[in-house]
Design a binder for these strands. Structure first.
Lengths: 331, 331
DNA sequence: TTTGGTATCGATACCGGTATCGATACCAAA
DNA sequence: TTTGGTATCGATACCGGTATCGATACCAAA
């Protein structure tokens, strides 16, 4: 009774006076079992403290209740929120999310995905559309449903949920121009790895060019985005090009760092210079001065992706292409 | 050859001209196999694109390569960093972290832990020492190694890695007093659920009392900590009690919100009032004014916890009680 | 030549579930 | 009475690995 997990289905079946098979059916809520059997089995299971062994179950049925989620980074709150959405949507489905982190490394990504597929998950959610061909093949050849998230600018392997980063960049350009900004700089980190940030920059430039304008200055540095970098790079950029009246950053973290620089130096934001980020992180509203940003529906993306997996599981035909449009905030 | 994952160990064995058992041994690097067999099996496995089935392996060997990690929240960067440390330490061990989120709910926690144990993980890492008795029993009765992290103030079930929050609170009190602060307030969120924050508050009060001082004012609100709340609560508190010369917050997020209020209202920080948080989040250094904090070694806690699991696995006797001391920063 | 140790390997059973198919009981319709 | 459908159940095989034990070959020592 306090045997930990030594109790097997056979014990439960014996205690309930039915076969293993009937016990299995009863616990899974199959229709082919009488009320009496269900009651007896449930009672026995409770009494013995039975805990099913998903390893055995998944091996036998050839599918597990795991949903693999592959993200580039855990310490980026954006992905943590996506995970949170996935976990929420999966909560009452009996499915369990399993996370793998790639550190923006495509080799690691390949390994992680391969690893996850070996667990025969019920579905796979991977970040981005720009996997190398080798990885795409892996995703194409598997028969578990694959959902690519965050991005829409590209060719999904199967289903896909996200936003167009090109359009988001372009929209921000248009907003800045509409506000009368004309000398616009750009600061970005790690665009070599973060293909979505790169797409935003491209869209942003196109937006400027469409209006006959150009990027006044562009700063690109490798590595992850931090507020500290944003602060430093903004200080440098404004020193070398003080005439800028707007800076577009690859994300909110950098933009916030830029804002901190301006606050410390008493540069009026947004009057003298408009700082624009991307993501719409929660703390933006609390900052002592306004930051422009584009609010991405991270939680919702996670929820939508998980729902696709659940739909496939249930035999429904899921929506294979879910589009969100980030809301631009220029308070 | 491009069969996805239909290739089993039997296929590899047949192709290599050995038995399943020898193939299994060869791929796992057992010593009981000849060089010739190892080469033949590896070659066959590569050629066929064999991917092992961990479900079958774990079921058979009665242990999986999963390490369960139970945390209260994913959207709190602190826990994301702990996870990151765990993932890093586990990276080359063949073990896979699996995360479960409790949302600070003890019922959810119980369910999550039970669920994880059913996967027969190689180890379990859970947050905190203050589980209800029912959950503690679950942890005690299992035979997988359990590491409780983040906290040291209490009785661990098995191994434990973290800091003393009582001591951390007390240390901050001493630092504030040493700086000459005498009218000290406190603002905290969700202490009913966050027992570690509560322990810090208790330690903080003891620290004040030991010096013959008292908390001038205490603000407790339910729910999660956000910068916005910190800002709002600080505004309220300073309005009702403008004479305060220090505020201790339950964490950095609240403290940062408080700082934003002071910046917006031109209250000199830290000259007129010292704001103190907890955690030492990375962005603290970038803020336009100094925040006091206690830097917690989140990544290191994750690494140490994972190492304990690995040590047990390898038959080493691990250190069962790993203590870290947060560094107080009063820049 | 006999003995005994080591290296290498395979047969067998098993981990703990579920898929599948067929058996049985029972009842309504013909 | 016969036929056929439905509800309920169990026997059997199987998922794809690994633990375990014993077999064999080979060689050195007695």
């Amino acid at each position: 009774m306090t045997q930990g997990s030594k109790i097997t289905l056979a014990d439960v079946a014996a205690a309930a006076g039915v076969s293993k098979m009937t016990a299995s059916r009863a616990l899974r809520g199959s229709i082919d079992v009488s009320r009496a059997s269900i009651t007896a089995v449930r009672l026995a299971a409770d009494k013995l403290g039975y805990v099913g062994n998903p390893l055995a179950g998944s091996l036998s049925s050839q599918r597990s209740n795991l949903v693999g989620v592959v993200i580039p980074s855990l310490t980026n709150i954006v992905f943590a929120e996506v995970l949170s959405g996935i976990a929420e949507a999966l909560a009452d489905s009996g499915k369990q999310p399993v996370f793998g982190v790639t550190d923006y490394n495509t080799d690691t990504e390949y390994t992680v995905i391969r690893n996850m597929l070996s667990w025969r998950p019920a579905g796979l959610i991977v970040t981005g559309l720009d996997q190398p061909e080798k990885t795409r093949n892996l995703l194409r050849e598997t028969n578990v449903p694959v959902v690519q998230i965050m991005d829409l600018d590209g060719e999904p392997v199967d289903a896909c949920v996200g936003i167009s980063h090109g359009a988001a960049g372009r929209a921000m350009a248009e907003h800045l121009l509409a506000e009368g900004r004309s000398r616009i700089g750009y600061i970005g980190c790690g665009l070599d790895r973060d293909t979505r940030a790169k797409k935003r920059l491209l869209g942003f430039k196109k937006g400027l060019e469409a209006a006959g304008s150009l990027l006044a200055h562009k700063v690109l540095v490798p590595g992850p985005s931090t507020m500290e970098k944003g602060r430093k790079l903004t200080a440098d950029l404004l020193k070398s090009t003080p005439s800028l009246d707007a800076i577009y950053y690859s994300n909110d973290d950098l933009a916030t760092g830029g804002l901190f620089h301006c606050l410390a130096e008493s540069v009026p934001v947004p009057q003298q210079i408009r700082l624009a980020g991307f993501n719409g992180l929660d703390f933006i509203d609390s900052l002592p001065a306004a930051l422009a940003t584009a609010k991405t529906p991270r939680q919702q993306i996670g929820v939508a992706a998980a729902r696709i997996i659940l739909d496939v599981e249930r035999g429904y035909d899921p929506q294979r292409y879910v589009t969100f449009v980030p809301e631009i905030i220029m308070s």
